[in-house]
Amino acid sequence: MTALLEFSQVSKAFGGVLAVDELSFTLDRGELVGLIGPNGAGKTTVFNLASGVQRLSRGEVLFRGVKISATSPTRIARSGIARTFQNIRLFRSLTVLEHVLVAQSCRSASLLTQMLPFASATDRTLRRQALAVLEVFGLADRRDELAVHLPYGGQRRLEIARAIATAPELLLLDEPAAGLNDSETAELSGILETLRAQGYTILLVEHDMNLVMRLCSRILVLNFGRLIASGTPAEVRGSQEVIDAYLGVAD
């Protein structure tokens, strides 16, 4: 069976800087894999390449065995890859609930059905589903507030909720625990476990090593755009190269 996501010899250059350098890896369905590495290692760039925001310089990205490295971000999102952003990017003028609604509709709805009045029957179903999503993320009781008024942790969770609402198969999470306090991190950890149990495939970029080591079945370690190690948390923790490059400098 083909891997869900495959990076094959992928490089991405910014001027002279190789942000990603001959990177190859695969993700299988249902895996929760960590992607770690020091700042500037190229993790966000990997996400940008997988979601089509940036074009790779060399190599190929395959999703379900199909090449997506020349596909538009819109198409990639519709085909089942959803992402969050390291620096939160919520919609300034939308409420919490509207974030989920807008993400739901874009998957399949044609332009014409989108122009139907908001109160149509299908919308009531979608609304119910949207509320269910917000329930999972602990945001249901703030559904009518503007998203930008949520506390930081709430905004991080809403980013994931919005991604989930597109009904993806693969979820790319860019530092979802960054800036969260302990209780918020615990809450996030619970959510990630739920998502894993629900069968989402997740690629997790995160600096919180406790979180990564505990949740991930496999970890990929990047440094200067190159994969310097990969394996189970125990294997990665034991690798001298990783300790030198990363763990030594992280907190």
Binding site: L90, E98, F118, R162
Partner: peptide, 26 residues
């Protein structure tokens, strides 16, 4: 008031985030 209303708001507020949820911005 239609769904397109939110979609337009979303792409107005953040083009890239809108694309990331499948909005056909172009």
């Amino acid at each position: 008031r239609s769904r397109l209303g939110y979609v337009a708001d979303a792409l107005h507020d953040d083009d890239e985030a809108a694309r990331s949820i499948g909005i056909n911005v172009d």
